[in-house]
């Protein structure tokens, strides 16, 4: 039977986990810092949950309120820089994305993280009018996760080509790329009908083709670039050292017809 592979998360997983293993959690503490308390008060009822994790205040909000919350944080609490924003894929577990914004207050030297859960298929409001750094960051989020951003001035793919299919950072997207990715160049440059002629990309970095005279696989036995060596040159059999390796040549080994 073929081994079952879950389709909703194709990323690498631990091959063994003790059945009694329970992952601990990074300690979360209640908000005690006076500056953070003022921030929590300013955000008010728009915050669903607040706590301090590793020295930074974390505020959970509803995705609908993100613009108002950011506006409050920028104008009332002095968070003048949005240093990072992106998303985390929780589609397999909850059919949701977790979006985070990492804000910085340079006068107080404090950082907070605003987090919201956005259901799959919904769009988020752009914070580009408040923080211009969101211009590139939201484009990257759109590119990598396919999360649409409302009122973004130029929502377009940023790292991947414009005609790319799929969003690379989704958990459903394999590390090696999907079928579209593996044939992207061939399809684009030559056309789909050339897939059979060109063949799949070889990803084995140690592959040596002794017949190939166009690359550097014949070091010490060079011939002119691209010369045809199919005729006239005897093929050298690969010989293994008998001292270190067992000789697996067909002549000396015997193939059994039946299982013993």
């Amino acid at each position: 039977m073929r081994k079952y592979v879950p389709k909703d998360n194709v990323q690498a997983k631990s091959y063994y986990t003790d059945r009694f293993w329970v992952a601990p959690r990074v300690p979360r503490s209640t908000v005690e810092d006076t500056h953070f308390l003022a921030v929590v008060e300013a955000v008010g009822t728009q915050a669903n949950e607040t706590y301090v994790e590793l020295g930074q205040l974390v505020i959970h909000i509803n995705p609908k309120n993100n613009f108002e919350v950011m506006k409050t944080l920028k104008e009332k609490c002095g968070y003048t820089q949005c240093s990072e924003q992106s998303a985390v894929d929780y589609l397999a577990q909850d059919n949701e994305f977790e979006l985070f914004w990492q804000l910085l207050n340079i006068n107080e030297a404090k950082r907070i993280r605003v987090i919201c859960r956005l259901a799959n298929g919904l769009a988020i409001e752009s914070i580009e009018p408040l923080y211009k750094s969101a211009n590139f960051a939201e484009r990257e989020m759109f590119d990598m996760f396919g999360i649409k951003v409302n009122n973004h001035p130029f929502l377009k793919r940023i790292l991947m080509p414009d005609d790319w299919e799929g969003n690379p950072l989704l958990k459903t997207y394999p590390l090696q790329g999907d079928e579209f990715a593996s044939w992207y160049e061939v399809d684009k440059i030559f056309g789909k009908e050339y897939r059979d002629i060109i063949g799949p990309e070889n990803r084995d970095p140690a592959k040596i083709d002794t017949e190939d005279t166009k690359r550097f696989s014949r070091v010490g036995y060079e011939v002119p670039f691209g010369a045809d060596i199919s005729e006239g040159e005897t093929k050298t059999a690969i010989e293994y050292s008998e001292t270190f390796l067992v000789d697996y040549n067909k002549n000396s080994s015997k193939q059994l017809d039946e299982r013993r």
Binding site: R25, V26, Q102
Partner: peptide
């Protein structure tokens, strides 16, 4: 297997 840090997030 690799180390298993506790659940949580850090920046």
């Amino acid at each position: 297997q690799g180390m298993r840090p506790p659940k949580g997030e850090v920046y």
